[in-house]
Amino acid sequence: KRLCLVCGDIASGYHYGVASCEACKAFFKRTIQGNIEYSCPATNECEITKRRRKSCQACRFMKCLKVGMLKEGVRLD
């Protein structure tokens, strides 16, 4: 089984260019469509796991980008 490159949960397929789970796919889409900017309360190096993926949105979004999710893949309509 493929794992989500962002949080390590089971991937539902390839989304925005990267093997990812439904939760991270939806999080990435919401962030881009809403043009949301997050800031990390710590040092921008929070560990993102299935259990902790909700704890820091800034680091989760940075990890989405780091593993290769493409903003261009999100439709803005």
Rank of each mutant, 00 (worst) to 15 (best):
K1L: 02
R30D: 07
L5K: 09
F28Q: 01
R75T: 13
F27C: 09
S39V: 15
R75N: 10
G34A: 14
V6P: 00
K63S: 03
G13Y: 01
H15G: 10
G13V: 05
V67E: 09
C4K: 02
A42P: 02
L76S: 10
T43P: 05
K63C: 07
D77E: 10
H15F: 08
L65E: 09
I36E: 11
C64N: 04
H15K: 05
I48R: 04
C64H: 00
K25L: 15
R51P: 08
K54P: 15
I10G: 14
A58R: 10
M69W: 07
K71Q: 08
P41E: 13
T43I: 10
S55H: 15
T43E: 13
N35Y: 08
C64V: 01
E22Y: 08
K66Y: 04
G8N: 01
G73Y: 03
E22G: 14
I10W: 13
F61N: 03
Y14R: 04
R53C: 10
K29M: 10
K1Y: 12
G34W: 10
A23R: 14
A19W: 06
A58I: 00
K63W: 03
R52A: 11
F61A: 04
M62R: 11
I36Y: 07
H15Y: 10
C21P: 02
L5Y: 08
C7S: 02
I10V: 15
G34K: 15
P41I: 10
S55F: 14
F27G: 02
A23G: 15
S39A: 15
I10Q: 09
S20M: 06
V74R: 08
F61P: 00
L70C: 10
E72F: 03
S55I: 15
Q33C: 09
E47S: 07
R53Y: 09
V6T: 04
E22R: 04
G68L: 02
L70A: 12
C21S: 03
C7H: 00
T43C: 02
L70T: 12
C40W: 00
E72R: 05
K50E: 15
K71D: 10
P41M: 08
C21M: 00
L5P: 05
E72N: 12
I36F: 10
E72S: 11
R2P: 04
E45T: 07
Y38I: 05
C56R: 01
Y14L: 13
K50R: 08
G8D: 10
T49S: 08
M62C: 00
C40L: 01
M69A: 02
A23P: 12
C7R: 03
K50C: 04
T43D: 08
V18M: 15
C59N: 02
K25M: 15
V6W: 01
L65K: 04
I32W: 00
R53V: 12
C21W: 00
Q33K: 07
A26K: 07
C40Q: 03
R51K: 12
E22S: 08
R51Y: 05
M62W: 09
M62I: 08
F28S: 01
R53H: 13
A26M: 09
K71W: 07
A11D: 07
Y38L: 05
L65Y: 04
T31A: 05
Y16I: 05
R51M: 14
A26Q: 13
L5R: 08
G13M: 03
A26Y: 03
Q33H: 07
E22K: 04
S39C: 15
A23M: 14
V74W: 10
C46H: 06
I32M: 04
C24K: 00
S20R: 05
C7P: 02
L76Y: 12
N44P: 02
K71A: 09
N44T: 07
V6R: 02
C21E: 01
Y14E: 14
G68N: 01
Y16F: 07
N44S: 09
E45M: 08
V74P: 11
E37G: 09
C24E: 03
F28H: 02
F28R: 01
R53L: 13
Y38W: 14
A26P: 03
C4W: 00
A19L: 11
S12T: 09
D77K: 10
G8P: 02
M69V: 02
R75P: 13
S55W: 15
F27Y: 04
C56M: 00
K66G: 07
G73D: 14
M62K: 14
V67S: 10
F28V: 06
K63A: 07
F61S: 04
E72Q: 08
C24H: 00
C40R: 02
A42Y: 05
R2A: 07
V67A: 09
P41V: 14
Y14K: 13
K54V: 12
V6Y: 03
F27S: 02
R60G: 04
A11P: 03
L76C: 10
N44G: 14
E22D: 15
C46Y: 03
R2V: 07
L76D: 13
R60K: 14
L5G: 06
L65A: 07
K1D: 10
M62Q: 13
G17D: 10
G13C: 00
V74L: 12
G8T: 10
C24T: 00
N44A: 10
K29T: 15
S20N: 14
T49K: 11
C4Y: 04
G73A: 13
A19Y: 07
C7V: 00
N35S: 09
A23N: 02
E47F: 05
R60C: 12
F61H: 12
V67Y: 05
K54W: 11
V18L: 03
L70E: 14
V67P: 00
C4T: 01
H15Q: 10
I10H: 12
Y16G: 10
C56G: 02
I48V: 12
T49V: 09
F61C: 00
N44L: 06
D9C: 01
L76I: 11
D9S: 05
Y16C: 07
L70W: 11
Q57D: 11
C64D: 00
C4Q: 01
R60D: 01
E22H: 10
R52P: 06
R52I: 08
T43S: 07
D77N: 08
L76N: 13
D9F: 04
D77Y: 06
V18D: 04
E47I: 04
K66P: 00
L70P: 11
S20Q: 12
T49P: 07
K29L: 10
E45Q: 13
Y38K: 02
C56T: 02
K71F: 06
C46M: 03
I32A: 07
T49F: 07
L65M: 08
Y16S: 06
A26D: 13
K29S: 13
V6L: 01
M62D: 11
D9I: 05
Q33S: 07
G17N: 05
G8E: 12
K25N: 15
H15D: 07
